[in-house]
Design a binder for these strands. Structure first.
Length: 478
DNA sequence: GTTGAGCGTT
């Protein structure tokens, strides 16, 4: 409250900002103010609008104008050095410099490169592509092309390894090279694989793989990308195969009080997230209704989610909540995980033991392969409300729901289900019988259903004989 | 040559 007043005072005191109301004298209230931003000292200067509410600059606005932009700097006329701009704790807005936005040209900061010229870099990359000639069609033998680079992304922990991201909605005429050039704005591109039909025509989607994990995350958290004039989406693939990500950005919060609001949770976990990683923030909070004493919180960073799960317990609204892994979805019922699968039951109610306590190993050793856990592309400036986010998830809930209830990846011979007494199969078919997987429901309601289901099991200690993986793992102790 | 939700001949 204090803060916004302060900011708004600062804002009003700005005088040198380019202000549209200068021409039309008295519409002052609704006027949009601009800052001058440029990619380099020499390149074209662009005026970007500030947010009317606090005269900060939205990262989204910047990124829209300069894809891949990471920060902003300006010359300090006294020291001659460049100064970086401060961002808000959520990392979504640039705050005004101490002496205001006026009379400055802000230079875009790109990650992992100096003040190198983007256009030069891009041109160089394009040239390389053309020179490659025979590999221009990325379908063709790209055997050893990027071996060195690919080595670099190998990460034994699996936590920060880059994965192929699917790029949807590409213009049909756009080439793989153009796509690749676009993603070069975010960092080093390991591969771009444009999917084509047998005639060679683009199918309008492709896969991009970055060398740098942070670049990947930046791409994912940017909801919309514009490539060749068309709006495209980049997501974690839902496809089969072992390109899946162990990235988990979601936590389960048990023992939530009924009075605790989404806003409270968001604020609290934003605070916790910032302690762990100053750039991290809450992307989504979901409290299933009717009230069931638990919630889900999504973070921009898997490391934060992981650390919070490790910490386990927090005090919110005066009582203790239990943070643990969100319940398993789809692939955790996959037979390929066998006996070592982690059927992480969320802490809840009187079963609120820490994950590691319950299972005798720490979450660090647990690797979910579950695209649904990852943060969906979202717009921090727009997708504030649960409704908006929910609308996003509805869009593809059919596919997600059906994936969730397909324990065996039945489409893929690789994952053909062994003939063991798969409770997962039973679960799936049971739910299938209820037609739950045909319902067009919010995946998080499905989560809630799963949570309820598993906690039913957990409340009934005599379930051990059913051959459930959970019983196997916990020796019947819940 | 058209189209516009989806998920990959590695």
């Amino acid at each position: 409250m204090m803060t916004s007043e302060l900011v708004s005072v600062n804002c009003k005191s700005e005088e040198g900002i380019i202000n549209e109301s200068k021409n039309s004298s008295e519409e002052g209230n609704e006027s949009v103010e601009y800052v001058v931003v440029s990619e380099t000292e020499e390149s074209e200067r662009l005026e970007l609008p500030l947010l009317p509410e606090d005269c900060s600059l939205s990262l989204n606005t910047l990124v829209h104008a300069f894809p891949g932009a990471h920060g902003l700097k300006y010359k300090n006329s006294i020291t001659g050095a460049s100064r970086a701009l401060l961002m808000d704790p959520q990392g979504t807005r640039f705050l005004a410099p101490p002496d205001g936005w006026k009379n400055k040209t802000f230079i875009v900061i790109y990650p992992h490169r100096g003040s190198g010229d983007q256009n030069t870099k891009r041109k160089k990359m394009m040239d390389e592509c053309e020179q490659e000639g025979d590999s221009e069609d990325s379908q063709g033998g790209r055997g050893g092309q990027f071996t060195a680079k690919q080595k670099r992304i190998e990460d034994p922990s699996g936590e920060k390894a880059c994965i192929d991201l699917i790029v949807l909605g590409l213009p049909f005429k756009t080439s793989a090279e153009t796509c690749k050039a676009y993603f070069e704005n975010f960092g080093e591109v390991v591969l771009f694989d444009l999917k084509t039909d047998p005639s060679g025509a683009s199918k309008g989607f492709g896969f991009v793989r970055m060398a740098d994990f942070d670049a990947q995350q930046r791409i994912l958290t940017q909801q919309t990308h514009e490539i060749d004039g068309r709006r495209c989406q980049v997501r974690i693939p839902l496809s089969k195969g072992d390109t899946g990500s162990p990235i988990v950005t979601r936590i389960f919060v048990g023992r939530v009080q009924e009075k605790t609001t989404v806003d409270t949770l968001r604020k609290f976990f934003n605070g916790e997230a910032t302690k762990i990683d100053p750039n991290a923030f809450v992307t989504d909070v979901f409290i299933p209704r009717p009230f069931r004493s638990f919630a889900f919180v999504n973070f921009s960073s898997p490391a934060v989610a992981k650390e919070l799960m490790r910490q386990g317990d927090f005090i919110i609204d005066g009582s203790s909540v239990a943070v643990s892994a969100a319940a398993p979805r789809e692939s955790d019922f996959s037979p390929r995980y066998g006996q070592n699968a982690s059927y992480g039951l969320p802490s809840q109610g009187r079963h609120s033991r820490r994950f590691s306590d319950k299972y005798g190993y720490s979450p660090e050793t647990v690797s979910f392969k579950s695209p649904d856990y990852t943060s969906y592309p979202y717009d921090p400036m727009v997708s504030r409300s649960v409704d908006n986010w929910r609308a996003n998830t509805y869009r593809s809930s059919d596919a997600r729901a059906s994936n969730r209830f397909s324990p065996g990846y039945s489409n893929s011979p690789r994952y053909s289900t062994p003939a063991r007494s798969g409770t997962s199969q039973a679960l799936a078919s049971g739910l299938d019988a209820l037609n739950l997987n045909k319902m067009n429901v919010n995946p998080d309601m499905m989560d809630a259903a799963w949570q309820a289901f598993w906690s039913t099991l957990s409340n009934n200690s005599s379930n051990a004989g059913t051959g459930t993986p959970s019983a196997t793992n916990s020796n019947g102790k819940w």
